[in-house]
């Protein structure tokens, strides 16, 4: 009996002092395949780096369209006013919209606000709850696929960024006629026009 108690005490002390740790099956799985830290950091990256990057580089939509219409080469236009990680990907343009809400579509889960500028340009802004595309993920200059090396996790990161965009956009109550200021991004394969783009917002402010 004493021997058993001694053995138990020995085992316990070995476990306590050897650096060994007892973990649950779930913890073990996480240790085997740890979640990318960038997934957890997505909201923080959105609020700091992404928002700053877009605010610092966005042109008002009418000015952006004017500048793009003066260019012939889309690759060059993307390099000058947008960003993409590789030449065979869509180009992501940062943009600022100031105008009044002319239409609200909340029937679809891919809900949108239509914002019409003083120059009469009407552009759709995605308010979710489902945001289409990955413009807000792909415009980020310091985060790319290579930071994940896993298509699914990279997709999940994009989804978390989009979810945070929806959270921000839906902090407001929208009505037709309200004046708003929007910063965001859109993706396009070619020179854009107002009807073809869908802006994913990082900031929507009711004026």
């Amino acid at each position: 009996m004493r021997l058993r108690i001694l053995a138990l005490a020995l085992c316990t002390s070995v476990l306590c002092f050897s650096g060994c740790r007892i973990v649950t099956v779930q913890e073990y799985q996480q240790l085997q395949d740890p979640e990318s830290p960038l997934l957890k950091q997505a909201p923080e990256i959105f609020d700091t780096k992404l928002t700053t990057q877009i605010k610092d580089s966005a042109l008002p939509i009418d000015e952006l369209f004017d500048k793009l219409s003066a260019m012939q080469d889309f690759a060059e236009a993307c390099k000058t006013y947008g960003y993409r990680q590789a030449d065979d990907l869509q180009c992501n343009f940062p943009v600022k919209l100031e105008g009044s809400i002319s239409e609200i579509n909340s029937k679809s889960r891919r809900g949108t606000l239509t914002v019409t500028t003083a120059d009469g340009t009407a552009v759709k802004v995605q308010i979710g709850p489902v945001i289409m595309g990955t413009a807000l993920r792909d415009i980020q200059k310091d985060i790319s696929y290579i930071d994940f090396n896993d298509q699914t996790v990279y997709g999940e990161y994009g989804e978390r960024i989009n979810a945070h965009s929806v959270e921000h956009a839906n902090a407001n109550k929208y009505e037709v006629g309200q004046n708003v200021e929007v910063y965001g991004a859109f993706s396009t394969w070619d020179f854009p026009n107002a009807t073809s783009i869908r802006v994913a917002p990082v900031i929507v402010t009711i004026k």
Partner: peptide, 20 residues
Amino acid sequence: HNNFQAGSDVANRFVELMAE
């Protein structure tokens, strides 16, 4: 291939064609 992107693009159109 970016199978995830390909799958997302097709699924987005599928949702649209199914009227959600």
